[in-house]
Amino acid sequence: MVRNKTWTSRTWIIALYVLMALIAIASLAPILHAIAVSFSDKAVAAAGKVTLWPVGFNTLAYETIMYDRNFLGSFIVSVNRVLLGGVINFLLTVLMAYPLSRQASEFRCRNMYMWFLIAMMLFSAGVIPLYILIKFLGLFDSLWALVLPTAVPVFNVILLINFFRSIPKELPEAGYMDGAGPWYMLVKIYIPLSAPALATVTLFSIVTHWNTFFDGLIFMRNMENYPLQTYIQQFVVETSTQNVSSSEQIELLKRLSNQTLNAAKMVIAMVPIFLVYPFLQRFFIHGIMLGSVKE
């Protein structure tokens, strides 16, 4: 591209790069701050003297966490939830997207199912009826309460329907000629050809399961069953904001709480996201494009 002379002038370009770099650093700064606090000396952190780099480096907070049974228990609940929820989400997304990606001429009831799905996505009864249902089903304190209500991620199903529809028709036709049934075609043709789309929706559901705290809060009565985010919400975040009536009380709670320990817990909860982030990023852009801006 031919660029205009005035814009190409060096100062502008340098200013642009500096601005972009500053914005990027500012976006990352609060996260770096949390990491720095988690590795800092307790007293220095409490005095608010830690910014982006640990002061008085130590790993005491992490060593303490290693002996915190509640924290480790919650971590395991979250891992279980991600595994079970991720598998259920994956299976149901694939199983629903394939028949619904057929034309109405191939699958007679397709549009009826589709409308049902969209109605379920658009209208929700709200949190209270679901709460009452879970209570009636006796699912309080069960891992199933965390995975079954969101077992069908309707938005992901729609993304995958769109992706399946972009696969050339000749492939299933050839399969049909060779006598392949729908199950065989789904497993041997559609799933292998949709690897990037499947990776996208699976990562979506993994991140969602890892990050959700609210269902754990209302469906788990016993704190041993809290997933990690609910644990952090209750014991790290909530103690500093909720159930207080004056600013003095907030400050008191703040002083009693252990900042380096809290920061370390939050950092541990972020690590899995950092680990999948490179993959997320690669597939996610792809995923957004699947769902939006189509001609």
Binding site: A21, I31, N211, Q229
Partner: peptide, 29 residues
Amino acid sequence: VQSIVYLPHFLSWVILSGIIIDLLSLGGV
């Protein structure tokens, strides 16, 4: 730049709020 500014999108509000509360408290940075 794109990757960095996109990262907070994937972190939960539990964590991000915890960080913000810490930053903005009376004794915070």
